[in-house]
Design a protein around this nucleic acid. Structure first.
Length: 520
RNA sequence: CGGGGCAUGGCGCAGUUUGGUAGCGCGUCUGGUUUGGGACCAGAAGGCCGCAGGUUCGAAUCCUGCUGCCCCGACCA
């Protein structure tokens, strides 16, 4: 990485990503291995994501709560399936006190050993279902629709900023229902919320579908997911929604008295997205100059750069910049109306009302050229240049981050133009990403071709191919090609995808094509 | 858990082969000139060379041990 700019994507996609995250001031490494500091600029993106999703959760009838970070170890033996998935990556609290080691440091006090060790939550199903047992007696107590915004600890071997860290932020919804069908509806409905959020807010098109047995959450009956494709043609799981069946109700003995007076086990769902969404949108849209951020989740949507050589000129350009900024701040901007896209969500979900997020950059030490590059790196959606030449003609120069073209606009029309361009950029980013997804989705019918497409390093896009439905075949395929089944899509991507065929590897009968890809 | 790399002012690095006053760039601070695509000049501050031993008159440099981080594989959101 040179002192100016970041590693290019063509040189090394992985280095590009890390350079971007660090240099754009989104996050940084911490003193603890695998953990990151989310810096204000990156955290602002997370806050916008939270606001958008939380509104949608409220509109679908959910309420927020917060459960403890530490979970008794004994809870983990209650549900064997679930433990299998996480046991290898749990942090354990064994003591509750330190003492002086006599050499100027501290040491764990062996006298302060916990009677029962505590697990730092890798996910909260166990403690939540232990709690739900007390909340649920009759059918009148159902459904329970609770979400929590929380941090999670998973001791991952290999970590990457935002994509996989030891500690990360997420939300986890945990719902309880009287019937299988109701839980099924909930799991599907929340997946649709995720799809809508990914597409409308993050401008990232996703495949929706069900996970294969091998890829599903260990404690689930079945798992749904949204899968995105990023610029290096790798897939990334951007959100999951699980139908947990009665697994946790049985493990924690959660029963309700039905209308008919019968004691029945409760059905459950859980669903979550994490700070990984930030990594996803970075890899989906950004370029070699830095972050390209969809306006809806951009901490700074418009940056105004007033310029001037001398005090007198600056007084004038600063005045004009402040004036424009206050005009923009008065505009209620919540993003384009994408309702024509017709989502399969019963509840009306409208984006938050908000104001245009604008910043006037009055740093006098930095040259305009430096500021151009700096804001391109940081992902301001629109840059407004306002210098003496512009004031002569009562205009300004507006540059869209994703286009880079300089457009001269009169000051009287600037705020309306900027508002329009934010809408346009939100839509254009989605369209571009969708085109990229289409260009990188392939239909393959022979094993030779399948192996060839996944040859070499890096991703190869989505490959739609037939699969005989067995775990063994899935394992062999991933061993040979590094590609995994990302999902079994709900809807055929192309006509005939949902028709029977023969397995790409074994030649055995296949019910439908599934989406393969190399994944993050 | 295997393989590789790295550890030197705030950041990025050189110096290590062949031991001899700790250097460069960026950033920071001061002053001045600048400002439409990463400005310039002058001056200044800032280091237990990851830790612990050892060899030596003398160690960033050689030897031994340790620790940490990053990257690549197997496992995972």
């Amino acid at each position: 990485m040179s002192k100016e700019g970041i590693t290019s994507r063509s040189e090394s996609f992985a280095d590009w990503y890390t350079d971007l995250v660090v240099r754009a001031g989104l996050a940084d490494y911490s003193p603890v291995r695998g953990c990151m500091v989310i810096k204000p600029h990156g955290y602002a993106m997370w806050e916008l994501i939270q606001q958008g999703l939380d509104t949608m959760f409220k509109e679908t009838g959910h309420v927020n709560a917060c459960f403890p970070l530490m979970i008794p170890k004994s809870f983990f033996s209650k549900e064997a399936q679930h433990v299998e998935g996480f046991a290898k990556e749990c942090a354990v609290v064994t003591h509750y006190r330190l003492k002086n080691d006599g050499e100027g440091g501290v040491t764990v006090d062996p006298e302060a050993k916990l009677e029962e060790e505590l697990i730092l939550r890798p996910t909260s199903e166990t403690i939540i279902w232990d709690t739900y047992r007390n909340w649920i007696q009759s059918y009148r107590d159902l459904p329970i629709l609770v979400n929590q915004w929380a941090n999670i600890i998973r001791w991952e071997r290999r970590t990457r900023l935002f994509l996989r860290t030891t500690e990360f932020l997420w939300q986890e919804g945990h719902t309880a229902h009287a019937t299988y069908d109701e839980a099924e509806h909930e799991a599907r409905r929340m997946l649709e919320v995720y799809r809508r959020f990914a597409e409308d807010w993050l401008a990232v098109p996703v495949l929706t579908g069900v996970k294969s047995e091998g890829e599903k959450f260990a404690g689930a009956d079945h798992t749904y997911c949204i899968e995105a494709l990023v610029q290096d043609k790798r897939a990334i799981q951007a959100g999951t929604s699980h139908h947990l069946g009665q697994n946790f109700a049985k493990a924690f003995d959660v029963k309700y008295l039905s209308k008919e007076g019968q004691l029945e086990y409760v059905y459950a769902t859980s669903w979550g997205v994490s700070t990984r969404l930030i990594g996803t949108l970075i890899m989906a849209h950004s370029d070699d100059k830095g972050l390209i951020c969809p306006p809806r989740v951009a901490p700074i949507q418009v940056v105004i750069l007033p310029m001037g050589r001398d005090e007198e000129t600056r007084a004038r350009t600063y005045g004009a910049a402040d004036q424009l900024a206050s005009e923009l701040k008065a505009i209620a901007w919540s993003g384009p109306d994408l309702s024509e896209l017709e989502y399969d969500v019963p509840e009306l979900m409208h984006p938050l009302g908000s104001r245009i997020r604008v910043h006037v950059d009055k740093r006098e030490k930095e040259s305009p050229g430096f500021k151009f590059n700096d804001w391109e790196l940081k992902g301001a959606c629109l840059r407004v240049e306002l210098g003496p030449r512009d004031l002569e003609s009562s205009s300004c120069v507006v540059v869209r981050r994703d286009r880079g073209e300089k457009v001269t606009v009169s000051l009287s029309e600037a705020s309306a133009y900027i508002s329009e361009q934010l809408n346009a950029m939100q839509g254009d980013l989605y369209t571009a990403a969708l085109a990229r997804q289409h260009e990188n989705t392939f239909w393959v019918d022979t094993w030779d071709e399948f192996e060839k497409i996944f040859e070499g390093e890096g991703g190869a896009g989505f490959v739609m191919a037939h699969w005989d439905g067995t775990q063994e075949t899935e394992d062999i395929i991933s061993e040979k090609t590094k590609a995994t089944i990302r999902c079994i899509p709900f809807e055929p991507l192309r006509e005939g995808d949902d028709q029977p065929g023969t397995c790409i590897l074994t030649g055995k009968p296949s019910k439908q094509r599934v989406a393969f890809a190399k994944a993050y």
